[in-house]
Design a binder for these strands. Sequence first.
DNA 1: ACCTGGGTACTTTTT
DNA 2: GTACCCAGGT
Length: 763
Amino acid sequence: MSALIQQLNPEQHAAVTLPTENALILAGAGSGKTRVLTTRIAWLISTGQVSPAGVLAVTFTNKAAKEMMARLSAQLPIPVRGMWIGTFHGLCNRFLRAHWREAGLPQTFQILDVQDQLASIKRLLKGLNVDEERHPPKQVQWFINGAKEQGLRPGDVQTRDPQSRQLAEIYLAYEAQCTRDGVADFAELLLRSYEILRDNPAIRRHYRQRFRHILVDEFQDTNRLQYQWLKLLAGPEDAHGACVFAVGDDDQSIYAFRGAHAGNMDDYQREFHVRHLIKLERNYRSYGHILDAANTLIANNARRLGKNLRTEAGAGEPVRVFEAPSDYAEAQWLVEEIRQLLRDGLAPSEIAVLYRANALSRVIEGALFNAGLPYRVYGGLRFFERAEVKHALAYLRLLDNPQDDTAFLRVVNFPARGIGARTLEQLQDAARLRATPLCDAVDALGGRGAASLQAFLDLVAQMRFQTAAMSLPDLVRHVLEASGLNAHYREEREGQERLENLEELVNAAAAFVTQEGFGLQAAAQQRQALGASSGAATEGLAAFDGIDPATGETLSPLTAFLTHAALEAGDNQAQTGQDAIQMMTVHAAKGLEFDAVFITGLEEGLFPHENALSEADGVEEERRLMYVAITRARKRLYLSLAQSRMLHGQTRYNLRSRFFDELPAQSLKWISAKQPGFGGGFGADQHSSWSDVPKASVPSFTPPAPKPKQGLRTGQAVFHNKFGEGVVLSLEGDGEDARAQVRFNRHGTKWLALNIAKLTPVS
DNA sequence: ACCTGGGTACTTTTT
DNA sequence: GTACCCAGGT
């Protein structure tokens, strides 16, 4: 332990060994934030100031929580699994599983993700006969989540005008529907936990006595409700209050659009009487020019707590800037620069291409693909959000809770079993009339529809019976077969990938069982090791995940797995297993670092984004976003922009981003190609040929060059492979070594390596 | 049950 | 440009 402490720099050391009082650590990018957090916990425990059970550490992402647990278990010889380390939602879920009675939830309540919630709202609006023009489901969803994140129930919502009055009514009906279904949405997990703590003195007292130290990661990202929750949990400073250790960086606050309130940092300092504000300003990540760029840029923001990153690593290479005539040329330049970096020995995964909006990835992806460079695009659907996986999960949810109408409607007729829209409408009417879940209204119907519905219920009941004694992976496999999902996708032409995902779901279930160490024995051992249960939990309060305080029963593996699926949506792309160039939005890059970083599309309207210009503090948030992007780079940073770019179906001519005027000229090197446009090679010598493009020059509008004619054009060829038949949209290269963008159906395109001889020209 | 055409939106996103 | 949703037709 003392060795760990000694490795810290003076700032970090001061933070880790702070006395027991509320503190705020202003942790700059790359300043060893996670290290300080985990070492603080390790220090507190190893010096006997707190037991592992007395620590609560909260993060925003599962990734951060896992990272913290991994590092902590490397530092301390204690089982970390049972500690209260997790995301806000994960910890609140754990809390609600223990106090499901007080929460008024079924013990096996399921969690609605964003998709489920929207489906639930759509169903509700139909039932209420609400005009979807007047109240678009998305807006209703936004309203409800917004209200919950401010701690407001339907009765607390301001209802001055008819519009908001109706929204409040919908909110009320939505709550009733969730209760009937036995489900909770994400915001509900937090709000209900908050309310239990607020309204139940015994529970509040228990947790306040238990958690002596509360540590918060990414504090600048907390929303109002999360802050109030922390305040309630910590309790008053004088009496039995916990000690709060908040770590954050106001300059990296980029989530205001989803309710993050960086002002919580000011409130926290005031309301928690913070005496020690420690700044971690020594950066261990980037070279000097990169940090100079970051520091100079962010200094343009008015309201800051104030911080300046420094390094002892030297100045390094200047930041390279490239202004391309078009988005296409920008991508070509990118390819050449990346090739050079790879020649220099950089691993592909150490190169990141960042952009402000996902739409910008397309051109770049095309260029990388055609160049034969391996890449991975982050974003899009995550594993547990895929349609086929959601279908499977819906069956699993029905096993657990037949009243889950969202799950019911999702699969009642999938795979198709002759239950039409009219039958379902009748069923929903009947259920509404009786105020029961759909499964309890089937007997109200007659005719063929009723028989089909009954057959569905029987199917689910049969699955429940058959799987009762099965292990979780076996259960999942059985449901995939018995439900007909596997058969359905085996039949389908393009079902191969979906089948693989379903198989992956079985693997995920198996991995989950292994990881969680299911069974009472493991849980009991964990409790014992932490020395938590006997003392505090004798009050009848559970200490651990999924343990019913009254009966001591653990959650079933199935319920736990479903919770896991909702709370942790998984990776957003199948692992290629290949070392690949990383492509992602700037938001997605937060918390990551790479040897070389490209920030693309640095144009007015794009970055800063035009929508942000009209919002209060919008430009400041964009600037913070740019700050985050810059500070991702360790060794090399590239900035690029295009004078013209195809966006929303039309060519736009954007001006150079204002951020260039806010960067230190001495840290930038403007480069340009000898032959801008197409066909001009951006050879290796380009990298040393700096041009003298003056920084403030107005970009000249080069008319977009015609796209080079390369092989066949859109719709002129058909391609066959295992995916089926597809239309070639664009083609590069020749012979057996061609690459093409192929559209296989009306839903999306794929880039493929193919042999031109295999193409069938369209007559 | 499946296909097709029209209409629309389109910044960022974790849980 | 294009991705997605929904309505209405086959």
